[in-house]
Amino acid sequence: MPQRPYIYPFVFGILALICLTIAPYLVFMYAGIEKEMGLAQKIFYYHVPSAFSMFLGSFLCFIFSIFYLWKRDKNCDLWAACSAEVSLLFGTLVLITGAIWAKPIWGAWWVWDAQLTLTLILWLILAAYHMLRTYLEDPVQSARFRAVLGIIGFLNVPFIHYATKLWRTHHPEVVRGEEISLPPDMKAAFFFCVITFFALFFALLFKRVSLAKAQNELESLKAET
C-alpha cells in the first residue's frame, strides 16, 4: 500500500504554525502603531503577504502549465491546478482585507487603486481557470486547456499592471497614500509575515496536492474494477 505523501504538508504546516505563533507578537507588540492609520495599518501585515502568496501561486501555475505542455506529465497539471486553487483562496483574502482596509482609511469599501484592481483582475482570471476546470469533461483535454489558460492568464499580469497604472494616473481622484518607507520595526514584522504566509501557502499547496493525488488514485482504481 503506497504511503500517503504526508511529509511536505507536515513540514510546512509545522513551519507555518511556528511562524504563526511568533507573527502576532511581532505585529502587535514589536511593531509600533502607525500614527495616522492607527490599528487599521496592522491589516497591511497580512494583506500584502497574502497578495504575495497569490502572485506566487499564479506564477507556479504558469510554470507548471508550461511544463505540462512540454513534458505531458500529469503531475505538472495537478500541481498547476492546485497552485491556482490555493492562489484563488489567497486572492479572495487579499480582496476582502483590501476592502476592510479601504473603509477606515479612504472611507469607501472599494477604491479603484491600481494594485487592488490588478488583484481583482487576476482573481477573475483565476476564477475563470477554476470554472474551466469544472466545466470540462474529458480529463486529458481539460488538462491541456487548463495549461493554455494558465499560460495566457499569467502573461496578462504585466499588461494589467501597466494598464491599471496608466488608468489611475489618468484619473487622479483617488490617490493611494504616498509610498512611505517603513520604519525598521514594521519592516521586520512585515518580512516575518511574508515568510509566514509563504509557509502557509506551501502547507496548503502540499495538502491540496496530496488530496488531488488521492483522488486520482481512487479514480484509477475505480476504473480498474
Partner: peptide, 27 residues
C-alpha cells in the same frame, strides 16, 4: 475553440475571454 468543448459550449466563451481582455479593453 476551447469553450466549445465545455459543458456550457459557446456560452462559456465570454467567461474566458473578458478577464484576459480587460487591459486591452481599458486601453
Amino acid at each position: 475553440a476551447m469553450s466549445l468543448n465545455t459543458r456550457l459550449r459557446e456560452a462559456f466563451l465570454p467567461l474566458l475571454t473578458l478577464p484576459i481582455f480587460i487591459p486591452a479593453l481599458l486601453a
